[in-house]
Write a protein that binds this DNA or RNA. Structure first.
Lengths: 260, 260
DNA sequence: ACAAAAGTGTTTGCCTTACACCCATGA
DNA sequence: TCATGGGTGTAAGGCAAACACTTTTGT
């Protein structure tokens, strides 16, 4: 599988190429202007936004399918990507909702049959650098956009539940996930890093304690540069020590307590 | 789906009943004589042990499939069961290994085709009370047995990796899992409870500190009974306060730090 | 000079760790 | 009475929470 095809192709030709009844959905997270954001897509013929997703080709590992979706949507490769849950309940996608989708695309019910079956969705979340991502869509029939994690619109099927599950997984595992390293550019400020943790944990973190904790772990290196940022003291710039972060995830070292 | 059928039926008639390319594998954990144990099965015609597993019927939620497997193997219902990971890499089951399996069961290749395809396995782990479990097998063609978690024999396909992943998931989440409540009988001693945590964390825990910590959380009630246990002081019996434990899992309260 | 936000230091209290001591039981 | 293992107490150290104070910058 090289490139994602337009959905009308995929939907009615899919039954030979893909593993039936299995899909992949991606929570793609980025950080911009102090906000944690999710990438969502929408078919123009549809009203509801949905998670970028796809199917697992017969010659693909599920991880590869997710990476293909990610590359197709953002142009990015080598991204941080982890499975977090699967969603397979019978009623998870409304029957009408799906039939409606086929109708809007003018796909005959028999050809689209494999699509209206129940699907088991493999949930992945991914952390990317917002400013490196492009938004690829086929502008004829779809749109894409970043949404503040706290302002998600009404979504297709159980996709809101999938996002909630992803977020609570990340919240529980925050100590083992190199959030900052994956979401921030090479050089970043301490308030930016803190902002990410605040967005995920959903509460304020003491500025002073956060800074001390982060620096004490030894994964962050202060640079002798600052960044101008308005009518106040310019914050220092920092950078991650990559090797240390890799260790942290591998051996499960506590990067940050979740008891802030 | 009421009852698991013998594998020769399942394997060659399965293609109509089950969702193709999807399976369910269960790590069933029990605690006996101070040891954490896993339930494994083996077809008599096969050399390798494997995880108890099954397929997802077209009218089942995956959770229900796992519960059906569990009930079929142990007779237990209402057990603690959680998904923890999925395994779907192309090469995860050796092609020969599977072809071999069909041959041993005298199933024609075309009929068993759906089985030798690549499968995406949904991984579940389950905590049960060892002494309440029976071991159901069809003695004609299979066997089942409990294995010490540290003495797993050579397993079919990637099942060892699945167990390892389950254990490391449990280890990371130990603070949120009511291990003791699910694995121990109603009345238990503090050394027994500690033993479980030691088995999972793979190291010794200070007897005195463990006891104080457990009691301080308030989920455990001391009973005014002891249990005779050899040439030394009889340990107290304790019991869990069920409601408190339910809260713990729901709201993610730290039952136990993993920094022992 | 002042407001706003960043950086540094200090105090307090709790939790973990380590370990000393006592108790109960069977050989 | 001794070995074995369970139960209670305590002291030391480390970490986190709260907060005071200093620094920098634009208006």
């Amino acid at each position: 599988m090289e490139k994602e095809k337009p959905p009308f192709d995929t939907l009615d030709q899919g039954s030979g190429i893909f593993i039936p009844n299995v899909s992949v959905d991606c929570i793609i997270l980025g950080f911009d202007s102090g906000r944690l954001k999710v990438l969502l897509c929408k078919f123009k013929v549809s009203e509801k936004w949905m998670l970028p997703g796809g199917f697992v080709a017969k010659d693909e590992d599920p991880d590869e399918s997710a990476l293909r979706v990610l590359k197709g949507r953002t142009g990015l490769e080598d991204v941080y990507l982890r499975q977090f849950y699967f969603f397979g309940k019978k009623g998870r996608i409304g029957v009408e909702e799906n039939a409606d989708m086929l109708k809007r695309f003018n796909i005959r019910e028999d050809k689209g049959q494999w699509y209206t079956d129940r699907f088991i969705s493999l949930g992945y979340y991914s952390l990317i650098k917002y400013n490196e991502a492009q938004l690829f869509t086929n502008e004829e029939y779809e749109e894409a956009g970043w949404f503040d994690i706290n302002e998600i619109p009404s979504l297709y099927a159980d996709h809101k539940e999938i996002i909630d599950t992803a977020m609570s997984t990340i919240r529980r595992q925050i100590g083992f996930i190199p959030m900052g390293y994956e979401l921030l550019p090479e050089k970043f400020t301490m308030p930016e890093l803190r902002c990410i943790y605040e967005a995920i944990l959903g509460r304020e973190i003491d500025r002073r304690n956060f800074q001390r904790k982060m620096l004490s772990i030894g994964y962050i290196q202060p640079l002798n540069e600052t960044r101008k940022a308005g009518a106040h003291k310019s914050p220092n710039l920092y950078t991650f020590i990559k090797e240390k972060y890799a260790e942290a995830e591998k051996y499960g070292i506590q990067v940050m307590s979740n008891n802030f």
